[in-house]
């Protein structure tokens, strides 16, 4: 293990929103970090706080309030940093790719100029001509056909997948140290998604950046990530290397997520759903947030009354479950029961 400081380190971050119905804790003591050249996937269902965490960490949150926690980027404290200095990092050292590329691009500026502007903002001494050449190069690299022609076109002349390529070009233009991709392929079709995932992989290899990939799609996770953080109701419930998450999950929620996936690669006799629905964050259970839906808990009092902390489950992974040692045998028995019944 080499003691290299992680590129992004979020520790103990808590974010709250004030709503007319009361305070909502969208992110509850979340910690994770990501190293250079590594892809961390943050996975979870709607409202689990996976996007809010990273937006808050980068100071991009509109309404919410950071209650506690620390975020460092390359060793520098991001939360205490003056807004001006942080803005200079964004788009340069630290870039984002969002779900909807159409809204990320300026509709009244040519695509090429937007890429060139990104270069110029961070290197004001660069000549216009150089910026233009470099922008065309970037467009070619992300697979925009006829980049010199497309340079002069507007976003509406591009398809959604093509726009996302441009956004990725802008994200890697200044050789960032961190790329945050927030559901980058959710709005596009599967064949386009395949292209974009390949592209993101190439981009990471080219730049050596750390990547935080926020997604709800476990297929995407398996494809791109080295490590995975699973979030539920504003908390990280399990974090482990990708093979381990899929092979031997150490939290009942992860087990549940995997067994309710319909599979493309094989027939599944029956899906085992997780009962109930994700909690309303205004009304999270007092003990373990997953307890009301957890079939392993069987309403034990520890689960109902005490928040399980995120603790090492084995040398490589952490899990927030009081009965982490039971997870494996329980998961096996659960699968067995269903197959027997089928």
């Amino acid at each position: 293990m080499v003691a290299v400081a992680p590129v992004l380190d979020i520790s103990d971050l808590t974010v709250e929103f004030d709503t007319p119905e009361g305070t909502v804790r969208a992110v509850d003591h979340v910690s994770y970090s990501v190293d250079a050249g590594e892809t961390l996937a943050v996975v979870g269902e709607t409202g689990c706080g996976k996007s809010v965490t990273v937006l808050a960490a980068l100071g991009l949150l509109g309404a919410g309030r950071i209650v506690s926690g620390a975020v460092t980027f390359g060793g520098a404290d991001l939360l205490d940093m003056p807004a001006k200095k942080r803005r200079r990092l964004l788009g340069h050292d630290l870039t984002m790719v969002f779900q909807n590329p159409m809204t990320a691009l300026n509709p009244v500026m040519t695509v090429g100029r937007q890429v060139a502007e990104t270069l110029l903002v961070h290197e004001p001494k660069m000549s216009r001509g150089t910026a233009r050449d470099r922008a065309i190069e970037l467009l070619a690299m992300v697979g925009v056909p006829q980049p010199d022609v497309r340079y002069n076109q507007y976003p509406h002349e591009f398809s959604g997948g093509m726009c996302q390529r441009v956004v990725i070009a802008m994200a890697i233009a200044n050789k960032p140290r961190l790329i945050v991709a927030d559901e980058p392929t959710t709005a596009v079709d599967v064949t386009i998604q395949a292209q974009l995932l390949d592209l993101l992989r190439v981009a990471r290899e080219e730049t050596g950046a750390a990547v935080v990939m926020i997604t709800h799609d476990l297929g995407v996770v398996a494809e791109v990530a080295e490590r995975v953080a699973v979030m539920y109701a504003g908390r990280v419930v399990e974090m482990a290397p990708v093979e381990q998450i899929f092979r031997s999950p150490r939290h009942p929620y992860t087990v549940g997520l995997l067994s309710c996936l319909p599979r493309l690669d094989r027939d599944v006799s029956e899906l085992i759903p997780i009962p109930g629905a994700p909690p309303d964050l205004r009304d999270v259970a007092r003990g373990c947030p997953f307890e009301p839906r957890c079939e392993m808990s069987a309403a034990r009092s520890a689960c109902q009354n005490t928040r399980p902390p995120l603790m090492p489950a084995d040398p490589n992974s952490v899990s927030a479950c009081h009965f982490v040692d039971e997870v494996e045998s329980w998961a096996r028995a659960r699968r067995g029961n269903v197959e027997e019944a089928a």
């Binding site: 974090m239 009304d283 995120l310 992974s317 952490v318």
Partner: peptide
């Protein structure tokens, strides 16, 4: 390994905001 286990996650049980609509 950079997984940093959060140790302070076990906070005092907070009063759950009652769900009101």
């Amino acid at each position: 390994m950079t997984a940093s286990p959060a140790t302070s996650a076990a906070v005092a049980p907070r009063v759950a905001t009652r769900r009101v609509r």
